[in-house]
């Protein structure tokens, strides 16, 4: 029982990090109907940026903030240099999709060039020590990761659902042409979306770096795919969906690691993905929009 609860906490903490990455997929998909497969590499970039700034003796929190800013900007640069020109030429959607795969490779290789391909130790910066509760030992890292992710996700939900700019984002996601008629600068909204996606990936990357105390250029590959699975599970384009999807993937894989064996851990997200696509293609929170004529 103790180990079950430990695994559950582990799953919840990891799940919220998946959610933090998953919102990046959902935000971009919501606005552009594009699955941004460079997002995993952006996450790895964020972790390395945090690693870099920690190395400059920034201290952990300022390092994460610096990483957040620079990674958010990376997201914007990706859009402005590679994706925006495709939109302007009204190219087929698959072109943008393949472009994001290419960008993913470019980012990963740049990370190898700058930092080397080996695993590098990352400081254990948010470990407040272990503690015992009801006879079960917990690591405080999980709780910090869970708390920070939850606050950020709620903040994001608040911005999207309660602010003027959030309303503009939702309007743009539903009908970009009508949004521009309302006076919304659609290009700025797209820029903001990439900025938010990049920044949340950077925070996730920095925290996972601290959690496992390691960073390496390929670290975004698996989590990127898992977060993608999580966003599809929740209903891609939906932020609450990304949150719930991330939590489910995190918890299910942790529990599966316990009962089925840790070798199957990484496959759980994809088993979930396949089942969702068959049973409920729109995802948990996704809906087929009503169009009246």
């Amino acid at each position: 029982m103790a180990i079950f609860i430990q695994q559950l906490c582990n799953g919840l903490a990891l799940g919220l990090v998946y959610a933090l990455v998953a919102v990046g997929y959902s935000l971009v998909f919501g606005i552009l109907r594009l699955i941004n497969f460079s997002h995993g590499a952006v996450y790895a970039f964020g972790a390395h940026a945090a690693f870099f700034f920690v190395g400059l003796n920034f201290g952990p929190v300022p390092a994460i903030i610096a990483a957040l800013v620079i990674t958010g900007l990376l997201g914007v640069v990706i859009d402005k240099t590679a994706l925006a020109p495709l939109r302007k030429k009204r190219s087929v959607p698959i072109a943008a999709l393949v472009t994001t795969l290419g960008i993913s490779n470019i980012i990963q290789n740049l990370l190898v060039v700058k930092f080397g391909s080996q695993r590098k130790p990352f400081p254990d910066f948010f470990n407040l020590g272990a503690f015992t509760l009801g006879g079960i030992q917990f690591s405080s890292r999980q709780f910090v990761m869970f708390g920070v992710s939850l606050v950020l996700l709620l903040l994001l939900l608040l911005v999207v659902n309660k602010t003027k700019i959030g309303l503009a984002m939702r309007a743009t996601a539903q009908n970009a042409k009508a949004a521009s008629l309302m006076g919304i600068n659609v290009n700025s909204i797209i820029t903001l979306t990439f900025l938010m996606g990049g920044a949340s990936a950077a925070i996730a990357g920095g925290m996972v770096g601290g959690y496992y105390q390691v960073v390496y250029p390929g670290m975004g590959f698996m989590i990127g795919l898992k977060a993608f699975a999580a966003s599809v599970l929740g209903g891609i384009g939906s932020l609450p969906g990304a949150l719930v999807g991330g939590l489910l993937v995190g918890v299910i894989e942790s529990i599966a690691a316990l009962y089925i064996g840790s070798n199957y851990r990484d496959s759980m997200a994809f088993i979930i993905l396949i089942v969702v696509l068959i049973v409920r293609p729109a995802g948990l929170f996704g809906k087929n929009e009503v169009v009246k004529v």
Binding site: L167, A168, R170, N175, L181, G183, I184, V290
Partner: peptide, 17 residues
């Protein structure tokens, strides 16, 4: 071209964006 997933009030609010 109304925003189908938003409420009537939100649609109107966007009108004065």
């Amino acid at each position: 071209e109304v925003f189908p997933g938003l409420t009537v009030e939100e649609n109107l609010r966007l009108g004065m964006y």
